[in-house]
Computed example of a mutant assay.
Amino acid sequence: MRTEVDVDGAYMEKRKKSDVKAKRMSRIKKILTYAAFVGPALLFFLTIQIVPFIMGVSYSFTSWNGVSSAVEWVGLDNYIKIFTDDSKFFNSFVFTTKFMLAAVFISNIIGFGLALLLNIALKTKNILRTVFFIPNVIGGLLLGFIWQFIFIKGFASVGNLTGLSFFNQPWLGDEVTAFWGIVIVFAWQISGYMMVIYIAALQSVDKNLLDAAKIDGASSVRMLGSIIIPLILPAFTICFFLTISMAFKIFDLNISLTGGGPFNSTESVAINIYQEAFQNNRYGLGSAKSILFFIVVAIFTTVQVMTTKKKEVEA
């Protein structure tokens, strides 16, 4: 006969097995749920981003022309050629870096200024937000052709009517004015997007802090520098990251406005890589340039994020 201890032991063993099975089923259910939601996005990310990136890295060590089936392995020859015999690529890097610095500064100044303006109680603020954001939804190629007409025809007409030399300059025909022309159009396009991010950050600032500062006699400028900006530093981190990456990767706006001219003085790195790979049929060399470009952009954005994140902690 089975004793009471044996019965209790069998019951506890059965209960333990049941709990283990339930936990296993719960874990499997959770994994399947995650896979159902994350799986498709992960699959597309791997297919569209990771796999092409790995292929690009491998092609950068070849002399493939992008057309034939013959792929010759050349090792580091493409990278050596870039550093020793490709001044055009480095000139495009210099232009892109200068453009990035100017565009990031101007775009964020305008975006933050518009956010401050539209954060106050204006009756038309919702309409103005839409108006300022609309340029961001216009495609870069279309926007470039629109502003090309404005610079060539519109500014010339205004200059003839007013006699102002500012409008009569060869905006897209001179190296200096073409550079600033691209900066103006980029800032005009992207500032509305930055404005939306800054407005969201400004609306999260505790009004009680501002009211207390006013009672203590703080001016608007003092509140802006000592309270508002330190509290919305995460928004600056995001906006700087976005504008740096967008400015570095400028292509469609650049190619539709100037095409890299005059005399390749406004040729961005993206245009240089495009011409190398798809016009000169040197896909291997173009891939090597794109990998170097990726490394530089990654370094710039990483340093920027680390620096601004440190400021957030200090604030």
Rank of each mutant, 00 (worst) to 15 (best):
F105L: 14
V183C: 09
K21H: 10
C239S: 10
W188F: 13
E4L: 13
N168P: 07
I50M: 09
T96I: 09
L285N: 00
A298E: 04
G113I: 06
G286R: 02
F251S: 13
L117S: 06
F179K: 12
W73M: 15
Y198L: 02
Y34G: 05
L242N: 06
L128Q: 07
L76V: 13
A213C: 08
T47Q: 04
A115K: 04
T62L: 01
A277M: 03
S157A: 15
V305R: 00
E4Y: 04
S191N: 08
Q169P: 06
I229E: 01
Q189W: 13
A178P: 13
L253D: 14
I229H: 07
I228D: 01
A270W: 01
A200D: 12
W64L: 10
L42D: 06
G225R: 08
D174R: 03
N160W: 06
G181N: 13
L101I: 02
I271G: 00
I54L: 11
L142V: 15
I28R: 04
A201Y: 13
V20G: 03
A288G: 12
F149E: 14
G75S: 11
L231C: 14
I184P: 02
S87D: 10
F248P: 00
P230K: 01
Q275Y: 09
I299W: 00
I215R: 01
Y11W: 07
V303Y: 08
I138V: 15
L46R: 13
L32H: 10
I227V: 15
L32G: 00
M246C: 06
A156N: 08
T124S: 12
Q148M: 11
S220I: 07
M25C: 15
I106A: 07
D211Y: 15
N264D: 06
D6S: 00
S191G: 10
I28S: 02
T237P: 07
L76K: 01
V137N: 02
G144I: 09
G286S: 03
I150V: 15
F278C: 14
E267M: 12
A103P: 15
S69F: 06
M194W: 09
I120C: 03
L161E: 05
A315L: 01
K153V: 14
K311Y: 04
K16M: 12
N280A: 11
F53L: 07
L128Y: 07
N168F: 09
F167R: 08
S18V: 14
V57I: 15
I271S: 03
F44I: 15
S245L: 11
G111P: 12
S92W: 12
V57P: 04
K30M: 06
Y59G: 01
R282M: 07
G139A: 04
I229M: 09
V196W: 05
A277I: 00
N264C: 11
N272L: 06
D174M: 06
L209M: 14
S287I: 01
I291E: 10
M246Y: 09
A121M: 09
S219W: 11
T308D: 09
L114C: 00
T124I: 05
R24F: 09
G113A: 05
T47A: 14
A187M: 11
T96R: 09
M55V: 11
C239D: 05
S245K: 13
K153C: 08
